[in-house]
């Protein structure tokens, strides 16, 4: 109750009530508001990850999946978390979704610690993750069914129309292509109107053409809705194409190695991936990742 109140107050940080509550709960609500020196935009922190550490216990000892990871996800930004497989990026995302508990450190949405799944946060999984025994519309209505609420039919049909799935409501998942399944899962997540979207390598299993198509779609959706998106991927080009910021993770222990600002203007077209500037960025990040792994790979000279 309290947290909801404070979140509303944060919209008006100069509000007297907000200041009162600041004193009351001992947390400054203006503290995590930064101003971007370049664009002058206000950058509020939506989710704050502080010293997140996750150790998996195995028979041969503990595995440090995450080691003191601190990362802020800003309100309305498109953040890509990039790294080689096994670097803990999925662990980080699942912890942000409240699906994994951390060994130490904490993750907050606004001022609320995330200990379990939060209604403001929706997750989009690898391989669409539709339930094969339900048709498309029943899959999309699943979140409402679980919350025992009537589905928001108007919003759902608008979203279906937006992603081009109108007319497929009664199809079973196996009758849909991979791209269509993933579009359905995007609709499923957006239908609950979350403020944060967490995407766990959503297009990893798709072919290159469908992937491009999905990347354009997700960019459009982001530009229309301005939801905060944290997007995990192992494709450097995908990360640069989509992101405002790319957080590069290194493996064992999982750490944030570097954060890159991607200031390419939007809307970005698929063709920009062939431009020299884009390729330069890709090589830069690539060399950073290889360097972080021990630098056994060829070093790339950047001019």
């Amino acid at each position: 109750m309290r947290s909801r109140f404070t979140r509303q107050c944060r919209v008006f940080p100069t509000d007297r009530i907000a200041q009162e509550i600041e004193g009351w709960i001992g947390v400054s609500m203006t503290e995590n508001t930064m101003v971007d020196g370049v664009s002058g935009k206000t950058l509020k922190t939506k989710m704050a990850i502080t010293k997140a550490t996750k150790v998996y216990q195995t028979r041969s000892g503990g595995v440090h999946a995450l080691d003191n990871v601190s990362l802020d996800v800003r309100e309305g930004e498109f953040l890509c978390i990039l790294g080689p497989s096994g670097c803990g990026k999925t662990t980080l995302l699942w912890s942000m979704a409240g699906l994994h508990s951390l060994t130490s450190g904490d993750i907050r949405l606004g001022n609320e610690p995330i200990m379990k799944p939060h209604p403001e946060i929706a997750m989009i999984f690898q391989d669409a993750n539709l339930l094969p025994w339900r048709n498309l519309i029943k899959n999309i209505e699943l979140p409402f069914e679980l919350k025992r609420k009537p589905p928001d039919r108007a919003l759902i049909s608008r979203l279906l129309d937006r992603v081009g799935l109108t007319g497929f409501e009664n199809k079973m998942p196996r009758e849909l292509s991979g791209g269509m399944q993933q579009r359905a899962s995007i609709v499923r997540s957006l239908s609950v109107n979350p403020s944060v979207l967490l995407m766990d390598e959503p297009f990893g299993a798709l072919d290159a053409f469908t992937r491009d198509e999905m990347n354009l779609l997700i960019q459009e959706i982001w530009m229309e809705t301005r939801k905060t998106i944290a997007f995990v991927t192992h494709s450097i080009a995908e990360a640069i194409f989509l992101a405002d910021r790319v957080a590069v993770m290194s493996a064992r222990p999982g750490r944030i190695a570097e954060i890159y600002d991607i200031d390419i203007p939007r809307p970005r077209s698929i063709e920009i991936q062939t431009e020299p500037d884009f390729i330069k960025r890709v090589l830069e990040i690539k060399s950073r990742i290889e360097h972080g792994r021990g630098g056994s790979g060829p070093r790339v000279a950047i001019t």
Binding site: Q126, L131, W133, L142
Partner: peptide
Amino acid sequence: AKIALARSFGASTFQIFTKIRIPM
């Protein structure tokens, strides 16, 4: 992944049982 999906939408243990485990 399917259980995580249900949990991410706030499903209870019983709902996971009736909506995910039994159909599966």
